[in-house]
Simulated scan of single mutants.
Amino acid sequence: METLTPGGTSKNSPGAPAAEANAGKRFKKPSFWRTALQQKYLYLMSLPFVIWAFVFSYLPLWGWTMAFQNFKPAKGFFAQEWVGFKHFQELFTDDRFYLALRNTLAMSVMGLVVGFIIPVIFAMLLNELRGMLFKRFVQTVSYLPHFVSWVVVAGIVTKMLSTQGGAINDLLVGLHIINEPVQFMAKGEWFWYIVTASDVWKEMGWSTIIYLAAITGIDQEQYEAARVDGANRYRQMWHITLPGIRTTISVLFIMQVGHLLQIGFEKQFLLGNNLVQEYSQVLELYALQYGLQMGRFSYGTAISIFNSVVSVILLFTVNGIFKKVSKESIM
């Protein structure tokens, strides 16, 4: 007896193989060149950015060869003296390098924890505001410091913490918390907290924009259902808003961990002084002072390679952990 397929075609009928062949052709994956031809305008639009990334991000990697040379600017590439891992050995035997590494990790971790949690909380609270005019005003005021240069921010922070007319010292003295003004900028143990607080104040509003955009993508019917079930605003934030932006939080956290050692040097350079140098020296400032300014270009390059390699390792490690735990990944 012939058996019929769900579509009504007999297994033994000559039309079955033809139908299967047509189905295979129908679902065949298109080739890359065919897709590129169909989306040629998108590829042409992205071409300038690909060229820009290659010129400014990948082409400079050729300069890493300096770390394995006793580089002299007056000599050509093939005339340089190759020294192998000599500069890396000097780097790992220098006590100042470990001091700079300690300061970099301390300020990076503090900035990562505080500077990552506060924007998320601020975005969730800002989303709960019902007055649109006041909400836009608060959001605008919060992200305006992002456009202020660190030179101006350092001047503001220094003036606020000054012992002569500084607002912080005047407030603490007026509230009788302290008896006399404190020289905050001369105390090394306070430097990490000052840099972290300044960075959070400057970048908090700008980081909030991404989370607010993610919150707007949450289905509003979930909030309506939660209100019907009697959930207050805090319950809605915890069970709806926070899970709704979990993917965005994970991606941004992984990317920030990848830049853990690359925190720059502007903040430390502008807010630091000789009295707090033991706490303000970071890896990039160390490379500038003991590498480029002293004409040790190969040594400075070795420091940059160390930063990049550690950043890549951290990025892949954290991404792998998140991929196993939450099934989310950026790669």
Rank of each mutant, 00 (worst) to 15 (best):
195 V>F: 01
188 G>L: 01
189 E>M: 10
169 N>A: 12
11 K>M: 13
207 S>C: 07
214 A>W: 02
308 S>K: 12
212 L>H: 00
18 A>T: 13
308 S>D: 14
261 L>S: 06
326 S>Q: 14
180 E>D: 15
162 S>G: 09
103 N>T: 02
64 W>A: 02
33 W>F: 15
251 V>A: 11
128 E>T: 11
130 R>W: 14
182 V>H: 04
246 R>I: 15
223 Y>F: 13
33 W>C: 12
55 V>D: 05
11 K>G: 08
248 T>L: 04
281 Q>G: 03
89 Q>G: 12
320 G>M: 02
280 S>M: 03
95 D>R: 13
155 G>F: 08
175 L>A: 13
221 E>S: 08
65 T>A: 11
169 N>E: 09
82 W>V: 06
152 V>D: 06
251 V>R: 10
82 W>M: 06
250 S>Y: 14
72 K>N: 14
41 Y>E: 05
106 A>I: 12
165 G>D: 15
296 R>M: 04
206 W>N: 00
295 G>R: 15
12 N>H: 09
257 V>N: 02
78 F>N: 03
64 W>N: 02
8 G>N: 13
136 R>N: 07
299 Y>H: 04
304 S>D: 08
287 A>H: 04
127 N>T: 11
171 L>Y: 05
322 F>S: 09
268 Q>N: 09
29 K>A: 15
14 P>M: 14
136 R>D: 05
120 V>I: 07
314 L>Q: 08
113 V>Q: 00
103 N>E: 02
169 N>I: 13
196 T>V: 04
97 F>N: 00
32 F>V: 13
64 W>I: 03
271 L>N: 05
98 Y>A: 06
264 G>D: 01
110 M>Y: 02
91 L>M: 10
77 F>V: 03
5 T>I: 07
